[in-house]
Each structure stands twice: as C-alpha cells, then as structure tokens.
C-alpha cells in the first residue's frame, strides 16, 4: 500500500514538475502540512497560494504532508530540481539538518514559516513564526483584566506536546501558580476534539463542582464546552456565569464572540506569505535580511470591542 502511495506520489510530483516547467522568474519550493489539517492550515495554504503566484512573478512547487519523512523527501527533491528558494513548515521540529545543509551547499536560501525547526541558525535565512506562548500570555492578561474575585478554571488542552498546547498551557499554568484566587478545577486534554471537550465539561457539571472560566486551547473545543453548558442550562459569555475563551479566530468563532456567546478569542495568524515575499524581493535586489526570526503580530478579540470588520479581516475559513 505504502509503495503504491509512494509511486503515486512520485508520479504526481513528476506531473506537477512538468506542468510548472514553463517557468516564470522565481521558483519557490513550498513544503507545508495539508490544508485539511485545520482551519488555520487552510487559511495558511490559501495565503501562500495567493502570494506565490504567477502574477507576482513566482512559480510555486508545493508539497503537503503531515509526515515528517515525506516532507524531508519532498524538500530534498525540490533541492535536486534546483528551486531558487525553499519554504518549510515542518511537521516535526527535528531531523532536518541534513536537508538544510544540502540546501546550503546548493546555495538555496531556506525560509521557515509557522513553525521553528531545531537546528543551527545559520542553516536558514529567516523564520516567520507564531509565538504560541505570547498568544497564551495575551489571553491570560485579558483574563486578569476582567478582575474576577475568584477564577475557577476548566482548562481544556490541545494535543499534548504540540507547539500550540505548550505555549497556551504555559501562560495559564504560571498565572495559576502565582495568584491565590486562581485555581484549576480540571485540566485535561481533548486532543483538539470538539466532542471530547464536551465530555470533559459534562463530567465537571455532573460532579456539581463550581467553575466560572473555560479556557479552551482552540475554537472547536470551546464550541464543545459551550454545548455542554447549553445542555445543562448554564449561562455563558457576556453577562453569563461562565467566561469562554477560545483560540485560532475561525470566522464562526469570531461570530460567537460578536454575538456575546463567547468572551475572548485569541488569534493565531496564518498570514506569513507577504513577509516572506518581501524578504525574497530584498534578496533578489541584492539586499540582506536583518532579522533572523520574525514573530507574526497577533492579537486577541474581546466581545466588548470586536466589530464585523475584524471578522472580515481576521476570520479564518468561512
């Protein structure tokens, strides 16, 4: 099966290459995760497709996989094909040294986007990434500003060990340890699964324990948590008993914030293509890139201040 899949993949690659052989000026090889992964990824892929297109003077070769080894093979292939630039959002943070070294030997500048790779700084030109810890800090700072007399939090985590989970959990854990009136009612992972989040909140409600904050590490899990509250007749959102916090800024989630059903949604910006485009243009014009690591500017949306314009501009998906 795997062999067949590989054969298929190789065929697809050859086909893609032969089609794109009618070259425009700059050839970029983009290695990313598949758009089906999440609303975030979908927007990310669309962003790159929109920027690295023929009108902007690019020929883009793309490869999508959740598997690190497949990504590595594709990147190596792009190097062999002689692309001008290599853009990578790695499935895993490790194992990339050999491929990046081979890119350096061939004089191909590498840009990392969305996620960092564990390797020497000299192996890439620049990285444009999200700071997950900063997203957590922003949300916790917002929560502190709400000035509740007591914080009793249900904390629903994403897939354990993922960048987003570590960053968003870290900020909350620190604050709970530091402040006396902050306590965690329950801290459990739903591995990004909406239904699992609902089950976790349902269990807390059934136990009769009191809580007034739900800190869910993505929008889907926040939605699951809210479904459990709705079924139990517990009010939430602006003027409700329970504060709802989500992350990622899916458009439907921001609508919930605008409607006052949720209180806060933290942004995780998938828009890195424009920044990288600017950097490539700088290199093409003989310039040099000053900053090695660019952190995408991200913010959070509060139900009190969000507008329809925010949803149109920052919302992901539909």
């Amino acid at each position: 099966m795997k062999k067949l899949a590989r054969l298929f993949l190789a065929l697809a690659l050859v086909l893609a290459l032969s089609i794109s052989a009618a070259a425009a000026e700059i050839v970029v090889g983009i290695v990313n995760n598949p758009p089906s992964e999440s609303g975030y990824r979908e927007a990310n892929v669309l962003d790159f497709e929109a920027v690295f297109c023929a009108e902007n003077g690019y020929t883009a070769k793309t490869f999508y996989s959740l598997q690190n080894d497949e990504q590595l093979a594709a990147a190596q292939q792009f190097i062999t094909d002689g692309v001008d630039y290599l853009l990578i959002s790695a499935a895993e943070t490790t194992g990339w040294d050999a491929v990046l070294e081979s890119a350096a030997e061939n004089g191909i500048p590498v840009f990392l986007f969305d996620r960092m790779i564990d390797c020497d700084e000299s192996l890439y030109e620049a990285a444009v990434v999200s700071d997950m810890a900063n997203q957590g800090d922003l949300a916790v700072a917002w929560l502190i500003a709400q000035n509740l007399s007591e914080y009793k939090i249900i904390h629903i985590q994403g897939a354990m060990g993922s960048d987003a989970q570590l960053g968003r959990t870290g900020a909350l854990d620190e604050q709970v340890a530091a402040a006396d009136n902050w306590s965690i009612v329950v801290q459990q992972t739903a591995t990004w699964d909406e239904a699992e989040a609902r089950n976790i909140v349902e269990a807390v409600i059934n136990s009769g324990e009191d809580f007034n904050v739900i800190y869910a590490e993505n929008d889907g899990m926040a939605r699951g948590a809210v479904a459990a509250l709705d079924a139990a007749g517990i009010t939430h959102g602006v003027g409700g008993k329970v504060i709802i916090i989500g992350f990622d800024c899916n458009r439907w989630a921001l609508r919930e914030v605008l409607a006052g059903n949720w209180n806060y949604d933290g942004q995780c910006s998938p828009f890195q293509a424009a920044v990288i485009d600017g950097m490539i243009k700088t290199l093409e014009n003989g310039g040099t890139i000053e900053t090695k690591i660019v952190i995408s500017e991200e913010k959070g949306f509060d139900a009190a201040t969000i507008t329809q314009a925010d949803i149109d501009q920052y919302g992901l998906g539909e």
Partner: peptide
C-alpha cells in the same frame, strides 16, 4: 451534536 464537522478529529 455541535452543528460542525471537523474532518480530522
């Protein structure tokens, strides 16, 4: 259940 489908989870 949630009026939503997440294909991955």
């Amino acid at each position: 259940r949630l009026s939503l489908i997440n294909h991955e989870t």
